[in-house]
């Protein structure tokens, strides 16, 4: 049900843009209104979400420790799996954000019988995740070419590296292919692994289908329909300089691609895609394990009802005295102490 629903939603989006532009003359809506709306929703939404999370305090410092703690000086401390300072925590977070350290733990190497080194690839998810995210980043950076004039050197550098294969015209980017592969893997994995399928919700399929469609339309735009990129750039530059123009003759396929990207941005803050921001705020990862060294303060710590020693002694004084346990208040001649027990 979730799969069909998500698929239908993405197909609907594609059709809406295609028909709207090619038949309905809505290119201004899809070329100008949508991107502004999307950016507004994206920025507003992200800020809103992060502020909302940030408003909730962190009452306890509860990092998940993944290695030896800082202990006696002669015991080797696993600084980055169990950080004890802010600096070490930053490294832990960097490993997490840039290399998906925790996901990598799924990896196993083992020695099979006969001492043949046997690599068991439990790390497909890690690899696909990493490839997906980095390709996405590179593709985003490459797209800066449409937002800048002159195009900065690093963007050109990335393009050169990415197009290293020098196949086809226009030259094929490695990241385009890898991105599609990774997204396909992530979709298939969700469909065929029964446990993962069982836990999947429509909001898990939708972004994947959306990204798949974005990739496909992007590739179509560049390699097959060969949309006039000069015009695209004119339009984009118009958008960012707040003098929007929509040049004629860009081609509906571009608008489909553009609309899907707008949808992604608009959808981002209201979905699980916010994990990108959430990881930085995850209290099991972004805090050092230094509770015994430095006190963590809970802003809403409140007094609670406790059973005080005095109450305890009142309750048991006679028995304590009898076996020679020291007491704060000696037994009184009248057995007043036991009366309230």
């Amino acid at each position: 049900m979730g799969i069909k629903f998500s698929l239908a939603a993405v197909v609907g989006l594609i059709l809406a843009a295609f028909i709207g532009v090619s038949g309905g003359g809505l290119s201004h809506f899809f070329g100008v209104t949508m991107p502004y709306l999307a950016i507004l929703l994206f920025l507003g939404g992200v800020v809103y979400r992060v502020l909302k999370w940030g408003r909730a305090p962190v009452p306890f410092r509860i990092p998940t420790t993944g290695g030896q703690e800082k202990s006696l000086p002669w015991i080797k401390h696993a600084k980055f799996d169990n950080p004890s300072t802010k600096g070490q925590t930053v490294v832990r977070m960097a490993l997490e954000v840039f290399l998906f350290r925790s996901l990598f733990r799924n990896t196993k190497f083992e020695l099979e019988k006969g001492h043949r080194l046997f690599y068991q690839w439990e790390k497909w998810l890690w690899l696909a995740g990493l490839v997906f995210h980095y390709c996405f980043l590179v593709i985003l950076l490459r797209h800066l070419r449409f937002f800048t004039e002159p195009v900065p050197g690093f963007v050109q550098g990335i393009e050169r590296l990415d197009g290293l294969l020098q196949v086809g015209l226009p030259g094929i980017y490695i990241t385009d292919g890898l991105f599609m592969l990774a997204v396909t893997y992530l979709i298939i994995r969700r469909l065929i692994i029964p446990q993962v399928r069982y836990i999947s919700l429509p909001q898990d399929y939708f972004p994947l289908f959306l990204l798949f469609a974005i990739g496909t339309t992007g590739i179509l735009t560049r390699y097959f329909f060969k949309v006039d990129l000069i015009k695209v750039k004119t339009m984009v530059m118009g958008l960012i300089s707040f003098h929007p123009v929509v040049p004629a003759g860009i081609g509906a396929i571009f608008f489909v691609h553009f609309f899907l990207v707008c949808t992604l941005f608009a959808y981002f803050p209201f979905s699980k895609l916010m994990h990108a921001g959430g990881i930085f705020m995850s209290p099991t990862r972004n805090l050092p394990n230094d509770n015994r060294i430095r006190r963590h303060v809970n802003p809403w710590n409140y007094p609670v009802k406790v059973h005080s020693y005095a109450e305890y002694e009142d309750h048991f004084r006679e028995k304590m005295v009898e076996v020679g346990l020291p007491v704060d208040k000696e037994l009184e001649p009248a057995p007043k102490a036991t009366a309230d027990s």
Partner: peptide, 23 residues
């Protein structure tokens, strides 16, 4: 508790159901 624990609040929203924890 959503207002008191950032863990709860953030963990409610960011799970992508990747299944790494499942087994």
């Amino acid at each position: 508790r959503l207002d008191k624990y950032r863990t709860l609040k953030v963990f409610m929203d960011i799970c992508v159901r990747c299944g790494a924890c499942a087994d």
